[in-house]
Amino acid sequence: MLSIKNLHAEIDGKEILRGINLEIKAGETHAIMGPNGSGKSTLSAVLAGNPMYNVTAGEVTFNGKNLLEMTPDKRANEGIFLSFQYPTEIPGVSMTNFMRAAVNSKRKYQGLEPLSATDFLKLMKEKRQIVELDSKLASRSVNAGFSGGEKKRNEVFQMAMLNPSLRILDETDSGLDIDALRVVAEGVTALKTKENATVVITHYQRLLDYIVPDYIHILYHGRIVMTGGKELALDLEKRGYDWIKEQFKD
């Protein structure tokens, strides 16, 4: 599904990703872990097409297509979904209008007619329940005044609405209490199918208790320095990242 080869990327002239290689197949769940500043969030931003980052080398294909030459909206409509670490507040744009625009953009991309108002509202109601999102939140402006937990649940709600094939969760556990974490993680798990794949970016092991990965990759200084099974997370939990830093220091 996703193939990343020798990916290099920079922001403001500073190189953050220094040769990432990663293959992800449908049905798989990959966790990307690593100390702060190792490039985890940059990787997710580059995959989603954030124009702040500049790709300097390497290639990324998604279902055989060159991802790097697509605009962010095209990537989304092709099936990539980034759950933001810090979801952006958009005062004045209601969740309903925002989701309607998003859902109908994807339908247009697929050559389908826009959803009728009734069908759209039915879909909203159905998907909202997956993450126990209050109906009041749906009528408010996008993320505006949402608590940290509400923002993350809202990300998973949008994921449910758009039904992406590649789900990238950027530090979805940050700022969540244990109950919110459970709701969010169960939502992600409930939406898992054989056809979609998941990339979980996290600093801590606790999210991986709920979203169990097939592979764990350790990112350090812009490279994947180690890949293992889910037991690697427990190892990190016990030993921290210092031994990685020691072993792979420049």
Binding site: A48, P72, D73, L82, F84, G92, A101, S105, L162
Partner: peptide, 21 residues
């Protein structure tokens, strides 16, 4: 970027943001 990351075209996103403002 957030709106584009949800599939909304740049032009439509700009219009929505200006109208919201």
């Amino acid at each position: 970027f957030y709106m584009q990351a949800r599939g909304i075209s740049e032009e439509e996103a700009r219009q929505m943001l200006v109208a919201a403002f």
